[in-house]
């Protein structure tokens, strides 16, 4: 995992060295205001819960670099999803992320003929660039911050995902997100459109008998309750490409506690829709994040 994101740091360091003579303190100064970058969403991008936002992850300002590690657990009725990874924000302009994800089928794996505790895993490599607008400073206009992103996903069980009908074991998501912090209302609103062919975020491969790339929606509404305390909810539509089992839309509701710029805990409830003939899958959503 380390080797995967080291190059990002290297490039970032070179860029910084070229652009200004900054001390280490300046470069990693965590200059953004608390909570304004959001947290890390399910696939490793800056956002919250299930939705990618237009914000650039981490507390680095336009002259700084931010980076965060995350661990996320979604404990569903029949399955367990886990994700761990690193997300880097460069000069509040570019975001690079890497996440490793595990989807444990538990005893449902046995019922599906895969074997008890069968794991669908995937790697997600993401990049996002802020196009225009500033979610924090543009308080006097309706202009949101807008960013475009890409996620390359590679599922590890190529034979199995193809056996259940997926066309591919890797695929690319393209998304555009618009995020607005409405300080006057203590609200954050975000909406995004994602062109994707990922089955269950990509864990069960890409495309299938019912289609391939389609345009999907993801959005969040978050209320700033108090300094370091947020509550929010996301909604995300998903493709339904596989023939053997129906896939549905997902939502999550959560509270976030961020005592400072270096730690956040997201705790909530997620409903990922029906998965692999086991009915709607709901359960605990927990995400721990640390960085600067």
């Amino acid at each position: 995992m380390t080797s995967d994101w080291k190059p990002a740091f290297l490039i970032a360091g070179l860029l910084a060295a070229a652009s200004q003579p900054a001390t280490a303190d300046d470069l990693f100064g965590s200059g953004k205001l608390l909570a304004t970058p959001g947290v890390i969403q399910a696939e490793g991008a800056g956002g919250a819960g299930l939705a990618a936002w237009a914000t650039i992850s981490g507390y680095g300002t336009d002259r700084e670099i931010g980076a965060n590690a995350h661990y996320t657990l979604v404990a569903l009725d029949d399955f367990t999803f886990q994700s761990a990874g690193v997300t880097v924000g460069l000069f509040d302009r570019v975001e690079l992320s890497f996440a490793k994800q595990w989807f444990d089928t538990g005893s449902a794996g046995g019922r599906l003929g895969l074997g008890d505790g069968f794991n669908f895993n995937q790697d997600v490599v993401g990049a996002k660039v802020r196009l225009f607008g500033d979610a924090v400073y543009d308080q006097d206009t309706w202009m949101p911050q807008v960013a475009a992103g890409i996620m390359y996903k590679k599922a590890d069980k190529g034979d199995i995902v193809r056996y259940v009908g997926a066309k591919d074991d890797d695929g690319v998501d393209f998304y555009v997100a618009a995020t607005k912090i409405l300080l006057n209302e203590s609200l954050v609103l975000s909406a995004g459109a994602r062109l994707t062919e990922a089955n269950h975020f990509g864990l069960v491969g890409f495309g299938g008998p019912n289609g391939d790339h389609s345009l999907q929606f993801e959005g969040s509404a978050v209320y700033l309750v108090d300094e370091g305390w947020l509550i929010g909810a996301d909604y995300r539509t998903k493709p339904d490409n596989l023939a053997f089992a129906e896939e549905g839309n997902a939502w999550a509701a959560y509270g976030v506690w961020m005592p400072n710029k270096h730690i956040s805990v997201t705790l909530g409830y997620a409903d990922l829709g029906p998965i692999a003939l086991q009915g709607r899958q709901n359960g605990l959503y927990l995400s721990l994040q640390t960085g600067f």
């Binding site: 400073y137 543009d138 308080q139 206009t141 409405l182 300080l183 309750v225």
Partner: peptide, 22 residues
Amino acid sequence: NEAGVPYRSQNKLLAILAPMAR
């Protein structure tokens, strides 16, 4: 915070000041 200004009011003032960043 020390003056006991409610969080929502703090955000309202920051909303007025933030665009001055430009």
